[in-house]
Design a protein around this nucleic acid. Structure first.
Lengths: 347, 347
DNA sequence: ATTAGCACTCAATCAAAAAGAGTGCTAACA
DNA sequence: TGTTAGCACTCTTTTTGATTGAGTGCTAAT
């Protein structure tokens, strides 16, 4: 970018303004900066510089005769160039996740909760999505005379099951044949690789039981399809009330609704999954976010990987003046933890 | 109760006050009632009666020189004696649930959403709990050389699975034996009936694979145990903002948190399940609710049954001046729908 | 037993005033 | 030429006081 439009002094001042605003949430005036920095400049001089910074679009005045607050561009500059790695201690958290490893669902839910408690922002964690995942194992079994159970296990050890009703009982031998049929034809395939040819061949071989095969295939599509609604765990949505700039009924309500419905949140996931080469942490400031209701927020997301392209996303949503350092640190640690933990069953 | 402390006229006036307050949400004065009822009484007379009603505890004044609003006792009286069955049309809703029957989870989630949209209150729906549920079917299968999959199906067709790691592969024959062992010993048993005797006998017979049996039993306990955290679906929590008496940041935040954490909500479930003889619909007004944060709300719950003592709860939470008729109608209809729908797989 | 009338209370609304924070500009200064 | 002191000006926030209006309680008349 054109970082060069800012000389060193302007940079220092901008940094001071943003720092101060991140802490207080109040517009910051020239006098404050004059004392806050060690530049030894009078407020008048600062005023001149601030006028320049405003013209360049890094800061704005909420109204005449108020101090300045960072613009989206200002925040962006801060995140890209001014942030310092703080590496705070988040080990405690890490510890906690590791110790209580249970079911994936519960881990994820707890991660969301902890992250929210730790940062005081709203959080979202998506379950790993089955992107390009392969079938590992399929099994049909008789549950009773009218119902059979289909179990599907994928490469990432994700299990799905479905009860299928049948009009008349299926004897064990037939069942065995069906199982062999399904496994030999489908194992190792990703959803995209199961084409019409495979399907019709399967059905043909299944003979009178082709409807069962249909049902299994449906379940398969459901399980591994992109459009399967991704499980998203959220927490700390009421943290929005902690920040005056979001506390307003209208805004808070919109935001909380977005989190409640979850559906919309998925857009971050898709955004993230698109970037094949993902350094890991993504920051959306204000309107950069794909979700309109978050125009007054910043969103920081991280993608964790469960191997084999099976990925999930962790996100933190807070006011634009969120503590980016802290948030990003937290995410980094968690990302690593999850990358590790979820791969192996507990041991 | 002592209904007799209220003569007919007082009853009429109380009813009028409550009705009016339910609609407007504003304290209602004597003049309003004087016109609202067909008693042909002057406001002065009404005032006298209102003074009496206040003394008896059915209504209160938010402050001197304001109108009256119903007290908890007043609401209680209304719900118990003054409500009229309205039987509004909620068919549209019923239709919707029925048509889109998919997975249980999705149905429940949608029920919560619809109910919230339909009533403008916050809603909660718990998944059927496995109360006294019996094991129907257990199956272990080899997924790969180090991992086996345990699938458990219960009477209510609820399926749970777990991946178990093993140190060395298990051949198919052994697996078959294990399956037979487990099924013949456990099928038909409820969790409470699986005692130490059964367990040690099982382990003994399993020989070197007793640790697998242990794992299966753990999963079983997890699956059917009471302490398994019950899945609760919520929706419409931002509806709280629609009612001035709850919109206050502090209160709204507390309420929404309660819904977000879900854990607390479970107390309604346990309350409901306790009552063996349950006519179906339960109303908690203000402090009658087991949850402290809901002291300014009313909660209406219904229990639906999936046969064999497998039950779930639907609840609606709103301001005390909620439209009880509408809410209870909605719940009645849904209760029936769920009773029916969830029993049979789609056909 | 009911009602009209009146004094009184209290929250809500509004406008005007005062306070406070901060800016922009000009003129002086190093 | 860059820096600074000083001052007038702007705009928000807070405070205050007055006004309004709804509603009550009480008393005296019907």
């Amino acid at each position: 970018m054109d970082d060069f439009e800012l000389d060193e002094r302007k940079t220092t001042i901008l940094k001071a303004i943003i720092r101060n605003y991140l802490e207080t949430g109040e517009p910051v005036g020239s006098r404050t900066i004059s004392k806050y920095t060690d530049l030894n400049l009078s407020s008048a001089t600062i005023r001149n510089e601030m006028a320049d910074l405003e013209e360049l679009g890094y800061i704005v005045q909420p109204h005449t005769s108020a101090g300045r607050i960072p613009s989206d561009k200002g925040y962006r500059f801060y995140v890209d160039h001014l942030m310092v790695e703080k590496n705070r201690e988040v080990d405690e958290m890490k510890q906690f996740v590791i110790e209580h490893t249970e079911k994936v669902e519960q881990v994820l839910e707890r991660v969301a909760q902890m992250l929210a408690a730790n940062t005081n922002y709203a959080t979202m964690v998506t379950a790993p999505s089955y992107h390009r995942n392969k079938v590992k194992f399929i099994q049909l079994s008789n549950v009773d005379t009218e119902q059979i159970l289909a179990v599907i296990v994928t490469e990432g050890n994700l299990v799905k099951n479905k009860i299928i009703s049948v009009s008349e009982p299926i004897d064990n031998e037939t069942m065995l044949k069906l199982n062999i049929l399904l496994n030999s034809n489908l194992n190792g395939l990703a959803l995209e690789e199961i084409n019409l040819g495979t399907i019709s061949r399967l059905k043909e071989q299944a003979g009178i039981h082709s409807d069962i095969v249909s049902d299994v295939l449906d379940t398969l599509a459901e399980t591994m399809g992109v459009d399967e609604d991704i499980r998203i765990y959220t927490s700390g949505t009421t943290n929005f009330f902690k920040y005056p700039e979001l506390r307003d009924s209208e805004k808070a309500s919109e935001l909380i609704s977005t989190f409640e419905e979850k559906r919309q949140l998925a857009s971050f996931v898709t955004e993230n999954l698109l970037e094949e080469e993902n350094t890991g942490i993504q920051v959306y400031i204000g309107n950069e976010s794909p979700i309109q209701t978050m125009r007054d927020c910043s969103v920081v997301t991280a993608t964790y990987e469960l191997g084999e392209g099976v990925r999930g996303t962790i996100g933190i949503v807070g006011p634009k003046r969120m503590d980016y350092e802290k948030v990003m640190d937290n995410l980094k640690v968690l990302k690593q933890s999850l990358d590790g933990i979820l791969n192996k069953p507990k041991g």
